[in-house]
Design a protein around this nucleic acid. Structure first.
Lengths: 132, 132
DNA sequence: GTTCTTATTGATATATAATATCAATAAGAA
DNA sequence: TTCTTATTGATATTATATATCAATAAGAAC
């Protein structure tokens, strides 16, 4: 099953690279469809997955939210606010040691990790204290 | 909105405590409905969320899988196999330092974290190499 | 350039998990 | 015992993503 180059796949890659980090499939679709009204949503989904399998883009799965797609911005983790559901970046230099431990312990071919912190963001904290 | 004690909520808590770690909402429902055929799936979902909000049980959200519910077994992270989708436990003594960093950096009220590693489990690795 | 194979597309249907709705029920205070 | 309203059970709806499939087009073979 040799991969063919298509205009659609190029458009998806281009859109992800142009868009901010954490673009959802729908945001990618919306960005493309403005210039190319005939592209199908299914095609966008398919190519986002294909491109993330080859490592050309990064797929970030956040529980309870739609999947997000990044150009490889930089190495970071995420914090999800329990109240508003928004996701924030967290720069991370902490996690270096973790990877080795996993490989050693489990016989896993270890390809990546997501660290998702949960909490309440400053804005929601403010709002909550206003209501009291 | 004062919380009332219900038989159903007690059953849900009991079932999660009895079941293995990582039980899905459906598994909890199945366990209860055998003895109590009239309980509704919606009630199980509702109480799982209520109980996890109060910290009586732990809700584990794994992207692409149904949410899982644990009695507080012990402190651990998870590895998800890219191929078969199964989730495995990983004992973790590594992560102590991470929490403080987050709180300091972001003004977040930080309530928890999930670390989900991705990889290919030994069984799938075996199967993949058999096919070559 | 022409033909041929089949990966890919667009449109739509389907799957899955979880939440929303709402009348009926029952917990527990008065 | 009465009353208020949180909770339930049944069902509809939402949201995201994948599956299906005939039509199209990439690109190898000639």
């Amino acid at each position: 099953m040799k991969r063919r180059n298509t205009i659609q796949r190029a458009l998806v890659l281009e859109a992800v690279n142009k868009l901010h980090c954490h673009a959802s499939a729908d945001e990618v679709y919306d960005a493309i469809v403005r210039e190319h009204p005939n592209i199908s949503r299914a095609t966008v989904y398919r190519n986002l997955n294909l491109l993330s399998e080859t490592g050309e883009i990064r797929k970030l799965e956040i529980p309870g939210n739609a999947d997000r797609f990044d150009h490889q911005c930089h190495n970071h983790c995420h914090v999800k606010c329990k109240l508003c559901g928004r996701v924030f970046d967290v720069d991370m230099d902490y996690v270096g040691g973790l990877e080795k431990g996993i490989k050693d312990t489990h016989g896993f071919d270890f390809t990546g990790y997501d660290i998702i912190f949960h909490g309440i963001c400053p804005a929601c904290k403010q709002q909550a204290s206003d209501k009291e």
